[in-house]
Nucleic acid binder design. Structure first.
Lengths: 122, 122
DNA sequence: ATATTTACTTTGTCAGACATAGTACGACAG
DNA sequence: CTGTCGTACTATGTCTGACAAAGTAAATAT
């Protein structure tokens, strides 16, 4: 099974989180579920990765947090919700551009059909 | 200017090096030049990143080193050359597969035309 | 003669991912 | 009404790859 290493995804967890928050405020557990769903179960973010990302992203001013009840009547346990900021949106946009560039560069070193490769002449 | 962050490239430096070594043995300075050329000057690997990558990749058994003169007559300063191994080729192949998967996943969270995005409804 | 390029090595720092563990509330089953 | 499961986190510490800073030294260009 091919797995996504934490090294290649590194630095893009923030981008994924921001992408989800662009659709509206959300909180830890829900975001992790969404990442799993959106990625077709191909990527599951670790809890500690997610929550430490929140701290970092908020420090950077890309998200804001607020505590609220799950339903308007005030039932259920309170959660910490996050909302993307203007700066966060700008950061997200720059990450999208960076991604296009990265893809271009990395693909110069990647073979799309690597199975056929051998080492004969080396 | 859009720049490639060390976080997104992390873990793919090894792959780039292996890709270059697939064409035949090479050494540090030349590899760094090639990475720059192949990437159209878009990515320049840092010296320390490169040389520490050699140590790691060799430890993993993906490359082998040998010291040789730059020309057959024995002139010039000796260099440490690297040669990819069978295990290295396999690793490279797996990284290519991983890349395809990663791309698929990341792109679910990336907007190709991010300029038009706003935050109205949030 | 010396500045630049080539070809490294050494040391130490930092950030992001993640393992491990623990807390605590609410829902629901038996 | 008790125990288990799912939800919703926090705290602490470790590891790895990238990289900054600095130094060495031979070869080559000026």
């Amino acid at each position: 099974m091919v797995q996504i290493s934490s090294d290649i995804i590194r630095g893009y967890n923030d981008t994924m989180i921001l992408n989800i928050l662009m659709k509206g405020p959300s909180y830890g557990y829900q975001i992790s579920k969404e990442i799993k769903t959106i990625s077709d179960e191909k990527y599951v973010i670790k809890e500690t990765t997610l929550y430490s990302a929140f701290t970092r992203i908020e420090k950077n001013g890309y998200i804001e947090s607020f505590v609220a009840n799950p339903d308007p009547e005030g039932n259920g346990k309170k959660r910490t919700y996050y909302r993307i900021t203007e700066a966060g949106l700008e950061y997200y946009k720059s990450k999208c551009e960076e991604w296009e560039l990265t893809k271009e560069v990395v693909e110069k070193f990647i073979e799309e059909n690597p199975d056929s490769l051998t080492l004969d002449d080396n």
